[in-house]
Design a protein around this nucleic acid. Structure first.
Lengths: 217, 217, 217, 217
DNA sequence: CATGAATGAGTCTTCATTCAT
DNA sequence: GATGAATGAAGACTCATTCAT
């Protein structure tokens, strides 16, 4: 796994402004090709061409195709994670009724900012090795939400990490359904509202755990 | 879409016992290769080899690789759908508190019966054209659950299809998190319990207000 | 070449009526498939299917695909040859002015009886080894026409075989142009008339000078 | 037909000298393989190998095997057409007795310059789609000759295009007979002379049409 | 004898990656 | 550093031919 991870690292850090711009161009191009042509047709040559450079240049920045796609995916996941983390910071210590909308809002906004991109990157995540990339960011978000839950004044969670993991996964499901076109008509319009309902209800029924102590007594 | 669908249809129906066995062997082999090697390495040659036959034979039953994978995916989805539909029939007219565990139980059981297979097939579903295959089964399950919800004596849902779609998607999320290895330790053990909690809570908070009055009284 | 020829011989002679019927069916099927699908798609399976039998049966009568196609081609060429030979017999000893229309008529009729078949078989003749098959029949027709020329009362040909070969080839050219769709509009309608003109003119200008004196006197 | 034609277009134009050399090498290799092995064995791998490059390189210049073969055929046909057109220009306005040898000479020279190549390409022309390629060049040559005929001072042709088409086809026949090895001994030696005889005689008997008017009077 | 499922060598074609210019 | 032509391994797929039933 060490080797595998090493093989996916970018070749050079964007120490120079030019590098950063080039890498940006590559990411944008990759997402465009991914979006318009699909993962199968997302070849290095095509990406380079869309980015206005030659294949050779692409290989100056990434050791192979997978490394580039991994980087693109990572950046996307990182964006989502940061957005959610900021939301968490913003409502630390607030009651569940305020946490839920904030969390859902941040998550949905991040994922639906560019739906095509989000959708295309799911395909990348599914491909060989994608799980590892996703896992890291996922844990990060779970941790942030767990911390948030622990700070709720109107609830006590026995296992905040678990509750966070379930809750987040439950939010991901409907968003993915929407992105992948399995949603019935009108789904998009009431998605956020329903997710708030869902999250609030779930968190409320989880916090009841402290009550169990009372039951035991 | 007609053409695309036609291209994925199997070539011959298993009229003879031998054919049926061959097709079964192909499905099993495909899942094994998918599971152990990943979608990229899941080539027709490898599948045929694992199934103990030559590539030619594979092509006698499926017009191309995608058709085989589609058939494997379809069979799996169909299994899940049928399981859930049966559960729905089994608790029609029962209160939410009984519906939720039955639904979650059926769904989780179907998806985790062969976790490796379930996981591997997500990759297939993600690949070009997979959405269409998933969509059909998804609608079928959504419809079954919607009907079930409408039969609940202790609740009235304004838009059962939407509630069903959200609820099911919310169940899918955590199951997928588990299958794809993003789950924290202990996740598997409390998954079903938490999903029941989640579903119950969500359905309770969705039902129309009038019912609540009756509950309180 | 002996081996090559042997490999193309049919497997059994049609001693039984059933064999003859089967072989007929195969020939007809082969021509149909050739005509409708082209040489590339003219596979043994397709031919057998169109002939209402299994591939296995086809191989009972022909050792391989090429042998079947060769037999079909040979039969066609033999038909043409026989037709022309009969025409030759029919106007032996007649003057050129009568020979030419008879020859052209026979040849054109034979080749255009089933234009699709004629055309399709050109493709077969062009394929590997086809030259050998064509050569034999060609020589036969050339010989028949040469003999006819030698019998002309109003002409003496120094080298009847050569004249025959040139003349026949010259007739083939326009017929082929028509069959292969390179002909301008109206070509078909005046083809025979023009070929008679062409043949008559050529034969007249070939015959030895002394004859001309006789004609003028 | 637009799509079909597009699929056969070369991929890149030989902008660089290297490219032009590569394309030339491919054409030469294709003809050699075609000549020595036949159309069936004329595979992309073999062509590339004979050209001293890898298959990949072949596909950098042609989108598929047929496109390469089509290009080779086209180049050959274009050569022939140009040669004949030049001969036509050279004897415009001259009497038939001078036209015929010039035309025959040019045509025979062009076709027999590299007999193996000419022969091999007939097989290509016969293959699926070849007719279309041939047709265009054929029309071009027919038009050039028709124009030439119209310029003859000692003859008037009612339908020069038709006469041209018949005459040219009649020349093609014997040349093809020679190339494909169906010719009797000595054929090659007297071919040109006989074709001149043939063409002259045919044209003379066609021009007689104006004379008919005189007959009618 | 007929059948048609099975075989697998051999095609075409793509695309990640390299390296001479 | 940039370029993009060249590479060739590897995949999908076909079809002539065989042979067990």
């Amino acid at each position: 796994m060490n080797d595998a991870a090493a093989a996916l690292r970018p070749r050079k850090s964007p120490v120079q402004a030019r590098s950063a711009a080039t890498i940006d161009a590559l990411h944008i191009a990759a997402v465009q090709v991914l979006t318009r042509e699909g993962l199968d047709l997302c070849t290095t040559t095509r990406i380079a061409a869309r980015a206005g450079m030659s294949v050779g240049s692409l290989y100056q920045y990434y050791p192979n195709r997978d490394a580039l796609l991994a980087a693109v995916l990572e950046r996307h996941l990182d964006d989502v994670a940061r957005t959610v983390e900021q939301a968490c910071h913003g409502c630390r210590g607030k009651p569940i009724a305020q946490m839920a909308p904030a969390l859902v809002g941040a998550f949905v906004a991040a994922k639906l900012r560019d739906p095509e991109e989000s959708k295309a990157l799911y395909a990348v995540a599914e491909a060989r090795g994608g799980a590892a990339l996703t896992a890291h960011t996922h844990r990060r978000v779970v941790a942030a939400v767990a911390e948030l839950l622990a700070s709720a004044p109107d609830a006590h969670f026995e296992d905040p990490v678990m509750t966070s993991a379930i809750a987040l996964s439950a939010l991901v499901g409907p968003v993915r359904t929407l992105l992948e076109g399995r949603a019935p008509a009108g789904f998009a319009e009431c998605l956020e509202e329903q997710l708030v309902l869902l999250l609030t209800a779930y968190l409320r029924s989880c916090r009841s755990v402290p009550e169990r102590k009372m039951e035991r007594s």
